[in-house]
């Protein structure tokens, strides 16, 4: 298979689900995750199409997705509500009632903390891979991870969760 179009398409298809899931985990909302995923896939396709010798790695794809999410979050205007309806503004709405506690706790964490938790607990990356993905030292990754874990636990347990439920 030497046609660059086919090569690019194959790479994009290979990474599409991974990119979309990672974007979803980082932003926690479907529409924005689709926007970020589309940006990321576009970058991947563009690289593979015009530089056929370039082979994307998982780490590179994670970085592209992360940057696309960050760019999108910075670019999009926040949702707007009339002043009179301010009291109705609450924590971000989630459509996962069975896990609302986890979603709420995640929603209260800064994006940088959510990011390390996603990489570690969802993508199962090692701290070394995380360091490469985030372009920071392994020590910094461990510090960030420990801080994010601690914050998540504090927020989660403050919500009245975190007590062991016996079956």
């Amino acid at each position: 298979m030497t046609d660059p179009h086919e090569v690019a398409e194959a790479w994009v298809n290979r990474y599409a689900d991974r990119v979309f899931r990672l974007a979803y985990a980082l932003v926690g909302e479907r529409t924005r995750a689709e926007d970020a995923a589309q940006d990321s896939l576009y970058h991947i396709a563009r690289w593979c199409l015009y530089h056929p010798e370039f082979q994307p790695t998982d780490q590179w794809v994670h970085q592209v997705t992360r940057n696309a999410v960050r760019d999108m979050q910075r670019r999009l205007p926040p949702p707007s509500v009339p002043l009179e309806a301010y009291h109705a503004v609450d924590r971000p709405q989630e459509d996962w009632p069975e896990r609302l506690d986890v979603a709420q706790a995640l929603g209260r964490l800064p994006a940088s903390d959510r990011e390390v938790l996603v990489l570690f607990y969802y993508l199962d990356l090692t701290t070394r891979d995380m360091a490469r993905t985030l372009n920071i030292s392994e020590t910094a990754v461990r510090i960030r991870l420990s801080r994010a874990r601690r914050k998540f636990r504090v927020v989660f347990e403050r919500n009245g969760q975190g007590k062991e439920q016996e079956p």
Partner: peptide, 25 residues
């Protein structure tokens, strides 16, 4: 543990919409 479970439950079955791939290419 709940966090891990939460993400895997929610995300493992997610598929990127086909038009997303098409549009990107």
């Amino acid at each position: 543990r709940l966090l891990k479970q939460y993400w895997h439950e929610r995300l493992d079955s997610l598929k990127a919409p086909p038009d997303l791939v098409e549009k990107a290419i």
